[in-house]
Amino acid sequence: GPMASDKRPRTAFTAEQLQRLKAEFQTNRYLTEQRRQSLAQELGLNESQIKIWFQNKRAK
């Protein structure tokens, strides 16, 4: 629909990254900035991508 703007492409996470994020989520529903930074480095992701993933996951 018209609401779907092309400005922010959805990140396609790899299965491996998703597995890691899910495991982290089961341990911590809320990430500290430090955890998020190390996860971002570990997974080669953007911190904001991880932050948003957690927000979306909590919203469900």
Rank of each mutant, 00 (worst) to 15 (best):
A40S: 08
A40E: 03
A23V: 08
A4N: 13
Q26E: 13
P9A: 07
S5R: 02
L21C: 01
G1F: 06
S48W: 14
E47A: 12
A23H: 09
D6Q: 04
D6E: 06
K60W: 03
K22L: 14
F54M: 03
Q41H: 08
R35S: 06
R10A: 12
P9L: 05
E16G: 07
K22V: 13
K51Q: 13
S5E: 15
K7N: 15
S38H: 08
Q19L: 12
P2H: 15
Q55E: 13
E16L: 08
A15P: 12
Q37P: 01
Q17K: 04
G44N: 10
P9Y: 05
W53F: 09
L39A: 00
F25I: 04
P2Q: 15
Q55I: 11
K51W: 12
S5V: 05
T32V: 03
T27M: 11
E47K: 04
P2S: 15
L21D: 00
R36Q: 10
G44M: 06
I52P: 01
Q26A: 13
E24A: 06
F25L: 04
E47F: 03
R29A: 10
S38F: 08
L45D: 00
A40F: 01
I50Y: 01
L39T: 00
N28M: 04
A23E: 12
L21N: 00
L31D: 13
I50N: 00
G1S: 03
P9I: 07
M3F: 02
Q41G: 06
Q17P: 00
F25R: 03
S38L: 10
Q26G: 06
N28H: 07
I50D: 00
K7A: 14
R36I: 14
Q19T: 10
S48Q: 13
K57R: 10
A12Y: 11
I52F: 08
K60G: 12
Q55V: 07
T27C: 14
Q37F: 08
Y30W: 12
A40Y: 01
E42R: 02
F13T: 03
L39V: 03
D6C: 09
F25M: 03
Q19G: 12
A23W: 09
K7R: 06
Q19K: 11
K22W: 13
I50A: 00
D6N: 04
T32W: 04
R58E: 08
D6H: 02
R10G: 15
G44F: 04
S48P: 04
T32S: 11
G44C: 06
E16W: 07
Q49K: 06
Q17A: 05
W53P: 00
L39Q: 00
Q19I: 11
Y30M: 10
A59Y: 08
E24Y: 03
Q34R: 06
P9C: 14
R8V: 15
A12L: 13
L39D: 00
A40M: 04
Q41N: 12
K57C: 09
E33F: 06
E33H: 11
E33S: 11
F13H: 03
K60Y: 04
L43A: 01
T11L: 12
Q17E: 03
A23C: 10
R10Y: 07
Q49M: 11
K51E: 15
T11W: 14
P9M: 05
Q49H: 07
M3S: 15
K57G: 06
I50S: 00
T14D: 05
P2C: 15
Y30Q: 08
G44D: 07
R8C: 15
Q55L: 06
R35Q: 11
F13Q: 02
P2W: 01
A23R: 07
P9H: 07
N28P: 01
Q49R: 06
E16R: 05
S5Q: 07
A4G: 15
E33Y: 08
Q26P: 01
T27E: 14
S38N: 11
R8H: 15
K22E: 14
R20K: 09
K60F: 04
E33Q: 13
G1N: 06
F13L: 09
K22I: 12
G44T: 04
L31G: 02
R8W: 15
T32R: 03
Q26H: 11
Q49S: 09
L31W: 04
Q41P: 01
L21P: 00
A59D: 07
Q55S: 08
N28A: 05
F54H: 01
A15G: 07
N28D: 10
R20T: 05
A59F: 08
G1D: 15
R58A: 09
I50R: 00
I52C: 14
S48T: 12
N56S: 10
Q55T: 07
A12Q: 13
S5K: 05
Q49L: 11
N46L: 09
E33L: 08
G1W: 04
R36D: 02
Q49N: 05
Q17H: 04
S38C: 09
L43C: 03
R58D: 06
Q55P: 02
T32E: 05
S38P: 01
K60V: 10
E24N: 01
T32N: 12
K57Y: 12
A40V: 04
K7F: 11
R29C: 11
T11E: 13
R20D: 01
S48K: 08
T32L: 02
Q34P: 08
K22M: 14
L43V: 04
M3G: 15
L43H: 01
R10S: 14
F25E: 01
N46H: 11
N46M: 09
E47W: 03
R35L: 10
A40R: 01
A40H: 02
L39H: 00
N28F: 03
P9R: 05
M3E: 15
F25W: 07
D6F: 00
T11Q: 08
R8P: 15
R36L: 14
Q55C: 11
Q41F: 08
W53I: 02
E42G: 03
E33C: 09
R35H: 10
Q41A: 12
T27D: 12
R29V: 05
R10C: 15
E47T: 06
I50C: 01
K22N: 13
Q26Y: 08
E16V: 07
A12P: 14
F54N: 01
I50K: 01
R10K: 14
E42T: 05
A23G: 05
N28Y: 04
I52V: 10
Q34I: 11
R20Y: 05
K57P: 04
T32Q: 04
E42I: 05
S5F: 00
K60H: 11
R35M: 11
T11K: 11
Q19M: 10
N28E: 04
L43S: 02
K51R: 10
L45S: 03
M3I: 15
P2M: 05
K51F: 13
R29Q: 14
T32C: 06
M3K: 15
T11G: 13
N56R: 13
A12K: 14
P2N: 15
A4M: 05
A15K: 10
A12C: 13
R36H: 04
I50V: 08
I50L: 06
R8Y: 15
Q19P: 01
N46A: 12
K7C: 15
P9V: 08
A59L: 12
L45F: 02
L31T: 03
K7W: 08
R36S: 12
A40N: 01
P2K: 14
I52Y: 10
E42F: 03
E47P: 12
L45G: 01
A59C: 11
E47M: 05
Q26N: 13
R20A: 07
R10M: 14
E16D: 08
Q26T: 11
I50P: 00
T27Y: 09
S48L: 12
T27R: 13
Q17L: 04
I50T: 01
Q17F: 01
A15T: 13
K7I: 13
Q19D: 12
N56I: 11
R20Q: 05
D6G: 06
T32G: 07
E33G: 08
S38W: 08
R10T: 14
Q37L: 10
K51M: 13
Q37D: 05
Q41Y: 10
E33V: 13
R20L: 06
S48C: 15
Q41I: 14
Q34T: 13
Q55R: 11
R58I: 13
E16P: 05
L31N: 02
R10N: 14
E33M: 11
R8Q: 15
S48D: 12
Q37T: 09
Q49T: 12
W53M: 02
F54D: 01
L31F: 03
L39K: 00
T14Q: 03
A12T: 13
T11H: 08
S5C: 15
R20S: 05
S48R: 08
L31K: 01
A4W: 15
L18A: 05
K57S: 13
S48M: 13
E24I: 04
D6P: 04
I50M: 02
K60M: 14
R29S: 08
R29F: 05
F54I: 02
A59S: 12
P9F: 06
